[in-house]
Simulated assay, not measured.
Amino acid sequence: MKFRRIAVMMAGMAAIAAPAAEPLAPDYAQGRYWSAVNSLPQGVAPNTALRGVDVFWIHPTTTRSTTDYNHDPLDPTVLKWTEESAVQRQASAFSACCRIFAPRYRAATTKALMDPTRREAAFALAYSDIERAFDWYLAHENKGRPFIIAGHSQGGAHSASLLEKRIKGTALQGQLVAVYIIGINLMDGDLAPRFAGVPLCSEPAQTGCFVQWNSILAESDVAPTLKAYAAAFAAQNGGRVGGSPLCVNPVTFDRRRPVSPAAEAKGAVVGNPGFGAMGPLRAGAVAAECRDGLLIVRPAAELALKPLPGGSMHFHDVGLFWADLSANAALRARTWLKTHKRH
């Protein structure tokens, strides 16, 4: 499996100290290996009006370990952080459009992500769970329904792999509403041959396409990030030049409108990821611009969001645009259902 350099969640995650044997493979016929997404930002009312589309959500790296390369998805400490600080805060953005299927899987830990001798194997094990979960979903729940694939960070990488290996060029592509590949560095060079036939989304209501963004503070020096992205692509593609990173503004979702003022943003989650319920949304609090393939953001101070080193807003790739993502997923779902109306 190809591994592309991604921004890794290095702090605030569940910490594992005791060494353990390789975790058992999840049995996706058991409900305990699926997350129930039942949390919303404070003040947001549940919306179940649109349920004709499914979303298969893949959570990011959530385990900071000094001993293990893949986490046990049912470990109580790991599970609590994964659920409350990742799944509920992120996958919930799709609750207005879709039934959500969020597998608990043996995700690669930060130890694996930082160890080039074990990284590929750890990612391959994690992805094997994702494929089996997706197969179970297709066999038992899909029943021909349209679906969205979405994930952040490590989950974004696995989403990209599902698109490349299981959906592109198959009958499933006809059921695809969109793929939200968030927080990894896809490049122009990935458009072909890797994703040939599945375009980068150009318009907010377009279906059968994928979106991508990486958030970084406006005052940051982006040169090291761009250099690292280019080097990683070349290393994995026989020296081929990858071009620019791909970016779709998650406020406009329109490639003709790469810049959005703060007033246009529908709602960001206040505060850093953590345990417990989400705070309220704040509308009009994030200015954003796709520039040089990165999403340059200017969040309002009242959001109280802490960046990672170098100004990366990786922790907040979803939270900054929670309401915008929610509205866009619903729009694409409605568009697909209208276009493919069954008689």
Rank of each mutant, 00 (worst) to 15 (best):
I130W: 07
T66L: 04
T109M: 08
D115P: 03
V87R: 01
A49I: 02
C98H: 08
I100E: 06
I16E: 14
T77P: 01
S65Y: 00
F56K: 13
P26W: 02
A36C: 11
L125F: 04
F94W: 05
K80H: 10
R132T: 06
C97R: 00
M13L: 15
W34D: 05
H140L: 07
T48N: 14
T109L: 03
L50M: 12
Q30V: 02
R106I: 07
R106E: 12
D135L: 06
W136C: 10
D54F: 08
H140D: 06
T66Y: 00
P26R: 05
V8D: 09
M9D: 15
F56S: 13
L40G: 04
A15R: 13
V87A: 02
L74A: 02
E84M: 06
I58G: 08
R51A: 11
G144M: 08
V37D: 01
P76M: 02
H140R: 13
A49P: 00
S128D: 11
P19K: 14
R104I: 05
C98M: 08
F94V: 00
F56D: 12
T77V: 12
T62A: 14
R145L: 07
S65T: 02
L74P: 00
N38R: 14
N142S: 15
L138D: 10
E84S: 07
V44S: 03
F134L: 12
S92E: 00
V53W: 02
A7F: 14
N142W: 12
A21I: 04
Q88G: 03
S85F: 02
A20I: 12
E84K: 04
D129C: 04
T63P: 01
T61Q: 08
R132L: 06
N47K: 04
C98N: 04
R118M: 13
R89Q: 05
E22T: 15
A7V: 15
L79N: 10
H71D: 12
T109Y: 09
P26C: 01
A107R: 13
S65P: 04
I16R: 13
I130K: 01
Y137A: 10
S128R: 10
Y127Q: 06
W57C: 09
R99T: 15
P103G: 10
W34C: 05
A36D: 14
P41V: 03
R99A: 12
A121F: 01
G52P: 02
A36I: 13
Y127E: 11
A107H: 13
D72H: 02
T63M: 01
I58T: 12
W57T: 10
